[in-house]
Nucleic acid binder design. Structure first.
Length: 469
RNA sequence: GCCCCGAUGGUGUAGUGGCCUAUCAUGCAGCCCUGUCGAGGCUGCGACCCGGGUUCAAAUCCCGGUCGGGGCGCCA
């Protein structure tokens, strides 16, 4: 769980629960105040055991009727599960549990001998979902009650891992000289075409929610910010309903000047390598919490295996051949669909790049070189994807920096360059060649945590049929 | 947008026309016991998504609705 060793006391507690549990030996006899959720309340009569849990750990509070106010004793003893309770008392060594002959004696544990306390907030019964119950809960019930779901240790661990992934990713990009930016999410025109946008009213004007920071991060680079990244939301009004799609998702985006597609693939694989390495070094406790739950459900444990560098590159033309030889029906110029990815994934199960897509399948801002053609003569682009198994993680590429080519590309896909002057004007006064990518944070998390659904790793997911909570 | 599937106590489930005043687990309430520790023992509480239809008889079959799940397309 969280490392709270450096946390300061607050108005409600002198110590976090983990601080007491971890330093019990030093604290024996010391009066402490802790607060947490009542995980279990056992005992009826003269003594009572209250298992308290906060965001850092668990500890048993021991209550004896003789040692405290009788009314308080009764109210805590009859408190409902998940009520929040504050207790004050001296730290003591717990009596060792009975263990069967030959079983190892567990390490010493500590508890709080309660002298006073307070019920901070009472929990209704029954709980919509049990925080510690030994029953499966459907995803929909969990999402409707996410505030309780997140109290479950493996769910809590997943969201701590999410925070770590963002932290380590930032850490790495900053080490390579990228600076964090924020681009507008309210925009006037389609950024890329293709996907549907959510329309909105911006005062008297029609506007949309941004589907991607793409054009803005390019403008930032054209403006001389050199290397930029953004972690922010993107919105797509697509009526999909799958384990890997949401209508609002967080995208990890970068853009760098004087770089091409190969250069930014390098940034990406180094970043993922760094994230995995750091998780492996620092966050085994979180992985352990996830695995404990997986074991209870009969699932294999997840393992953090740092991927080898460089990731395989399977150019589009080669990918088509792999699919064909694997029995898939596909022709040059076709999209590589999920069932095709299954064939490729059988050969390349981990992370792999698919560079050099046909220009006709990539957005107008992707760069191409006239001399790079596919086997059947079609124009190739400098756009690439990053896949893990069958799932697409990333889309990226070298960008078109020649304004006259950019405008032609717009016309080729049926867009009017006149609608994009806010963007194309950025290229008229000298433009560095540049490249970048966008990575789906939740999809990366799925790989790391073994989650079978993006909704597992998004706190309050927005899909086709869910806008609350 | 297309295709498939599902809805039973708070939660997760059993159930394929009469054996269902509906199973089991968990939960909740109460009692007993107890320095417990996945506590234990006993008693009790609580459900067939909504509307129509078929039938002597519907949780079960049919139609419509609502909500949900899975897959595809598209994408991150």
């Amino acid at each position: 769980m969280r490392d709270s060793s450096e946390w300061k006391p607050t108005s409600y507690r002198t110590h976090t629960i983990d601080q007491v549990a971890r330093n019990g030996e030093k604290l024996v006899g010391t009066k402490v105040t802790v607060a947490g959720y009542a995980e279990t309340v056992r005992g009826r009569g003269a003594i009572c055991f209250l298992m308290l849990r906060d965001g850092t750990g668990k500890i048993q509070a021991f209550l004896k009727k003789d040692n405290m106010d009788e009314e308080l004793f009764d109210s805590i003893q009859s408190a409902t599960r998940e009520s929040t309770i504050q207790v004050t008392g001296k730290v003591a060594m717990k009596r060792a549990p009975k263990v069967a002959e030959g079983d190892p004696v567990p390490p010493p544990e500590f508890e709080v001998n309660v002298e006073s306390g307070d019920i901070l907030a009472h929990a209704d019964t029954p709980l919509p979902l049990g925080v510690t119950d030994d029953v499966r809960v459907g995803l929909d019930v969990r999402l409707d009650n996410r505030h309780l779901d997140v109290r479950r240790s493996h769910v809590n661990a997943m969201f701590q891992l999410r925070s770590k992934v963002l932290q380590y990713g930032r850490e790495h990009l900053i080490s390579e000289g990228f600076q964090e930016i924020n681009s507008p999410k309210i925009i006037a025109a389609a950024a890329e075409g293709g996907t549907n946008l959510f329309p909105m009213k911006y005062f008297e004007t029609d506007a949309y929610l941004s589907q991607s920071p793409q054009l803005y991060k390019q403008l930032a680079v054209l403006g001389g910010l050199e290397r930029v990244f953004e972690i922010g939301p993107a919105f797509r009004a697509e009526k999909h309903d799958t384990y890997r799609h949401l209508n609002e998702f967080v995208s990890f985006d970068i853009e760098g000047a004087w770089m091409d597609d190969e250069d930014v693939m390098g940034v990406q694989e180094r970043m993922i390598h760094h994230i995995w390495t750091r998780v492996l070094e620092n966050d085994q406790a979180l992985i352990g919490a996830v695995n404990e739950y997986r074991a209870s459900q009969g699932n294999d444990p997840i393992q953090v295996t740092v991927p080898e560098l460089p990731f395989p590159r399977i150019p589009y033309c080669e990918a088509i051949e792999i699919v064909k030889s694997g029995g898939g029906e596909i022709e040059w110029g076709d999209d590589i669909e999920s069932h095709h990815c299954d064939i490729i994934a059988a050969k390349y199960p981990g992370f792999h790049f698919i560079p050099r897509w046909p220009m006709s399948m990539k957005p107008f801002y992707i760069h191409h070189k006239d001399e790079e053609k596919g086997s059947s003569g079609g124009q190739l682009s400098r756009g690439f994807d990053l896949n893990y198994g069958r799932d697409e993680m990333t889309s990226g590429g070298a960008r078109e920096h020649r304004v006259e080519v950019l405008e032609q590309n717009l016309r080729d896909v049926g867009l009017d360059p006149g609608d994009f002057t806010f963007y194309t004007d950025g290229f008229r006064y000298g433009a560095p060649p540049h490249a970048g990518w966008g990575l789906g944070v939740a999809r990366l998390l799925m790989v790391l945590t073994g989650a079978g659904n993006v909704r597992e790793v998004v706190l309050f997911p927005r899909d086709r049929s869910r806008v609350t909570p």
